[in-house]
Design a protein around this nucleic acid. Structure first.
Lengths: 178, 178
DNA sequence: ACAGAGTCTGTCCGATCGGTCAGTTATGTT
DNA sequence: AACATAACTGACCGATCGGACAGACTCTGT
């Protein structure tokens, strides 16, 4: 028997994927797991905590990328960043393979793992940000969102995704896509 | 002075873009317009009607594509469909240029313009559909969603978008991307 | 048998949602 | 001035949301 926390995370991931974060209520998750809504809030402090835990590994990966990025600068740093973020997206797909969470929801959640302003502006440059959007940081979430949306329901091999994502990011940066 | 309906549609489009459909309340729209919530429901029968009206031109375009598609079959029809849907996405961007509505919300709205089952399965083949998703049809919405998400905040020229969308669709179809 | 920690649930709460409705104000028309 | 119609609003409603909390159940060590 798997642990309760694991079951909750599994159900939540599947439901978030199907209906989005706002579109999934605690009762929906509880029904899917087969327990009461209150039981969810015993294992997790609140609904956001469930989402945060699903994204925790991604946050740690991002910090790793950030660390490798620090000593670099300019063109070299940008290319490293692109490669790192693309690999992050691919790894993320394997880790939480059915998680296709509503991107717009994510863009407005302040409590998700944060990054410093340098990485923020870099990622913003990579993927852009719509004017008037209230998101604090999470430009990197947009990249993940692009990846997830592109992969929605279509099992594109990693190799193809890697090429496409890298090309798109480089183009957004205004750099040659050699 | 522009008409009240036009003002409502404009505000709704901007707010849907920033926070998604579920993330935008009628009160939010009313505050943005500068009128009461009840006034919105005087001009539109309900919240969904606002969204439907924003997408009405897309629905008409889809019918046109469908019409041109009918006399064709097989390989030729598939290629025509891809081209038509890509042009639809590009035209859609110009018509409702700030509308970046939450795709997952759209996937679950039954009252949006529908298409017949033939076009449905064709578009499903084009863009795929995540297992367990409750959407009735609107596979074509997923294509639009891919387009919108890819374009989020990045002003990619039409030409590049056309090439990328066409390539992606053809690849999803398992056809050579010549 | 007992105690206590860990686990789970029924029930309630305030907030917010989309939507309704009676009634008020504004705008013509005769 | 009197009236009709359109435009608009404040107040309210039922439903649903995330969350709080007291109590009940299960298990384990003594």
């Amino acid at each position: 028997m798997t642990s309760m926390r694991a079951e909750i995370l599994e159900s939540a991931a599947r439901l978030f994927a199907a209906h989005g974060f706002r579109g999934t209520s605690l009762q929906d998750i509880a029904s899917d797991v087969g327990c009461s809504k209150a039981s969810l809030l015993y294992h997790f402090t609140n609904k956001d905590a469930i989402l945060s835990e699903l994204f925790a590994p991604v946050g740690r990966d991002l910090e790793t990328i950030q660390g490798k990025l620090a000593p670099l600068d300019g063109e070299q740093a940008a290319r490293e960043a692109v490669a790192g973020l693309v690999e992050l997206a691919l790894r993320f797909r394997r880790q939480v393979k059915i998680l296709l969470v509503d991107v717009d929801d994510l863009l407005c959640r302040p409590e998700l793992p944060d990054v410093d302003s340098a990485t923020e502006s870099l990622v913003d440059a990579l993927v852009g940000r719509a004017p008037g959007q209230e998101c604090r940081v999470v430009g990197w979430m947009t990249l993940v969102g692009i990846f997830l949306t592109c992969a929605r329901g279509v099992d594109v091999p990693d190799e193809i995704m890697r090429v496409e994502l890298t090309r798109g990011a480089l183009r957004a940066l205004g750099r040659p896509t050699d």
